[in-house]
Structure formats: C-alpha cells, structure tokens
C-alpha cells in the first residue's frame, strides 16, 4: 500500500513510436470489430431497455417484446410508476437507506481509519488486527442473522445499514492514505496545540478529499445495490427497498399491483413498466459514475491494489 494520489506513470504517446510497425488493415479491422462488439455488449442491452421504457404501448405490442427501433416516445410508464405508491415508496426507502448508510459508513470509517493510522498508540495492534481479521474470515450468514434479529432490528431500516456499515477494505484504503500524509505536517499542527479532532478535521480530511469521495461512492453503490440483507430482514412489503421490488416484479415476474399494472386500454404494457423500474434502479450508478470514473484508472484503486 503506498500512495493513493494520482500517479501518471509513463504516459504512452498517442501516436505510434517510430519503431512500431504500422498495423495491417486486416488487424485494424479485426481489433475495431472486437472493440465495437464489446462496447455493444454493454450498451446494447441498456439501449433497448431504456427505449422500451420510453415507448408507447402500440410500439411495444408491435415489437412483441423489447423495442429496438424507436417509434414515438412517452413518459407514460414512469408516470404510472410514480403515481402508484409501491415503486415510489421503494425508491424513497432505497434513497434514504443509501444516504444515511453512506453518511454513517463514511464517518465511522474515516474516524476508525484515522485512529488506526498511528502505530504505537494505545491498543493499536489489537484494534488493527480485528479489522484485518475481517478479510480472512466471515462469521457466517446464520450467526449474523441471529444477532440482527436478537437486537430487534428485523423490519427496521437499521438492519440494512449496521451489519454492513464497516467495510474492512475501505478502512484499510483510507488508513493507508492517512499514513502517507507527511508526519511533519501533523507534527507542526501538534506543536501549535491542535488536538487529534482538529488535525483530522482541518488538515487530514482536506488533504484526503478524493479518497474519501471514492470510498463514500463505494459505500453508496453497495447500499443502493444490496438485495440479500433486505430479503433477510425486511418482511414488511411497505418497507421494501428497490432491489426487492426489482426481484419481485421484474425478475420473478410476479404481477404488479393493480394500480400500477393498469387495467384501462391505453395503459402502458407491463413490459414498459418493468423496464422503467430497471432504468430507475440503474440510474444512480449511471449519474454518479462519470464523476468518479477518472479516479479509477489512475489513483485510488490502482494505488490501493498495487501496493
């Protein structure tokens, strides 16, 4: 684990080096085809899903399923979804759990990582060890389940947050970043009389904005995507997060509640509604993705992984 700041390394020149042979046209064509196919394999499904969710009933019926060629655009499916309580409530639950969970996880992890960044402090080794143990052993689904229900957290939103609130990986990433902040910076603050809280808040955190942002994004994605914990702990359908709705109505194709399914003739077909739910589930990832993507190739992740 070394640095988490961006390290450009050796930039490859955008053009061929003089000693490189010119690629053959056949080779270029082959490579171009493969790259195009790969991009299509990711974007193709997303394209047809988004398009189907936006298509009027007639278009979906004519296509007999997913729509590949646009023919009229309507927001009817989304209007239907949000006029009904089932999906809109699930979106609220997922949003709330994601926001609260991310805040708690990031806060706890930053504090914890900072407290573990000082070798030689009181109980440093056992506390660090107990975090590292989380990498090599998982206590098991059943004991964790018994603990959660023993604490009375079943059907509580806390059951979606607390059991997964600390990710050892994220704590270690933050800790290794904090440890690379030059000691002189911290020492001079200490000489000026700053306590640990002040140092963390005024010096360490402002220097660690990028890594903290990426860690909180990882937590956020985790909370938004989590399905299994909700399935285990939330029986009350009114408290279901979006992942459970997605499973129930889209994957398992259980009928949507009457209000959403639409009984009138001009209501959107269920497929459009299903696809609209998929789009809503994928949207947050698509929205925040561009903002953090640049950290992936260089910097945080690579620094954390390469050591």
């Amino acid at each position: 684990m070394t640095t988490l700041t961006s390290r450009p390394g050796r930039r490859r020149p955008a053009r061929l080096a003089p000693w490189e042979e010119r690629p053959s046209p056949a080779g270029q064509l082959g490579k171009g085809t493969i790259v195009t196919l790969i991009v299509l394999a990711v974007l193709g499904p997303l394209y047809t899903i988004v398009l189907t969710s936006l298509s009027p009933a007639a278009t979906v019926n004519r296509a007999g399923g997913l729509v590949l060629v646009p023919d009229g655009i309507t927001l009817e499916a989304y209007r239907q979804i949000f006029s009904d309580t089932v999906v809109s409530r699930a979106v609220l639950v997922s949003t709330g759990v994601t926001l609260a969970g991310t805040l708690i996880s990031t806060g706890v992890s930053v504090l914890g990582a900072y407290s573990l960044s000082r070798p030689g402090s009181f109980l440093h080794r056992p506390l660090l060890f107990s975090i590292l143990l989380m990498f090599v052993f998982f206590p098991g689904i059943i004991p964790v389940y018994l603990m959660v229900s023993g604490l009375g957290l079943k059907d509580s939103y806390w059951s979606l947050i607390l059991p997964t609130a600390v990710s050892a990986f994220n704590v270690v990433v933050l800790r290794s970043f904090f440890m690379n902040i030059p000691g002189e910076v911290l020492d001079s603050a200490r000489i000026d009389g700053a306590g640990e809280w002040r140092i963390l808040w005024r010096i360490v955190l402002p220097m660690s904005k990028a890594v903290t942002a990426v860690v909180s994004m990882f937590y956020a994605v985790g909370y938004w995507n989590a399905w299994f914990n909700a399935m285990l702990y939330i029986d009350d359908t009114r408290r279901w997060p979006l992942a459970l709705i997605l499973r129930q109505y889209v994957v398992d194709s259980n009928p949507l509640p009457a209000a959403t399914a639409g009984v009138t003739g001009d209501a959107p077909p269920t497929l459009a509604i299903k696809m609209a739910i998929v789009v809503i589930a994928v949207l947050p990832a698509l929205i925040i993705y561009p903002f953090v993507q640049r950290h992936f190739t260089k910097g945080v992740i690579v620094g954390a992984v390469k050591g």
Binding site: L128, T164, F169
Partner: peptide, 16 residues
C-alpha cells in the same frame, strides 16, 4: 454481505 468489498493485495503495518 451486500456491500461491495474487494481485497487489498497488501496490508502491512509500518515499523513501530
């Protein structure tokens, strides 16, 4: 479970 984790490849504590 559920929250995304990965395994860092090297975890070491600095000299004490």
């Amino acid at each position: 479970m559920g929250v995304m984790t990965a395994r860092p490849i090297n975890v070491e504590s600095p000299p004490q």
